[in-house]
C-alpha cells in the first residue's frame, strides 16, 4: 500500500505538533490506531491535533465526540477528513 502525499504531510504534522521525538513518518501505519493503542496518543494530543488542523487546513471540528472519534481513528480517516473539509 502506498502512502499518499497528504498522508505523508499529516504524518509530518503529527510528529512536529506533538513533538514525537523518536518517531519517524515510516513508524506511523496509516491503518493503526493513533490513540491509546498504536501510536499511543492521549486526549491532550487530540486537542493539540485539532488545533493544528484548524491552523493549517481551516478545519473546525464539531465538539460531538463520536464523529471526532471516527475522524481521529487512524491516519487514513484523518486524511479523509482533511480531503473533504479543508478550507486551505
Amino acid at each position: 500500500m502506498t502512502t499518499t502525499a497528504l498522508e505523508h504531510e499529516l504524518k509530518q504534522m503529527i510528529i512536529e505538533t506533538l513533538e514525537l521525538e523518536d518517531v519517524t513518518p515510516d513508524d506511523i501505519d496509516p491503518e493503526e490506531p493513533l490513540f491509546v493503542e498504536g501510536l499511543g496518543l492521549d486526549s491532550i494530543d487530540a486537542l493539540e491535533l485539532g488545533l493544528a488542523l484548524q491552523k493549517r487546513y481551516g478545519i473546525t471540528l464539531e465538539s460531538e465526540a463520536e464523529s471526532s472519534r471516527q475522524h481521529f481513528a487512524n491516519l487514513k480517516s484523518l486524511a479523509a477528513l482533511v480531503e473533504s473539509r479543508r478550507q486551505k
Binding site: I44, D45, L51, Q54
Partner: peptide
C-alpha cells in the same frame, strides 16, 4: 493566537 492545549497543561 489560539492556546496550545499541551502548553497550557
Amino acid at each position: 493566537e489560539p492556546l496550545s492545549p499541551a502548553r497550557f497543561g
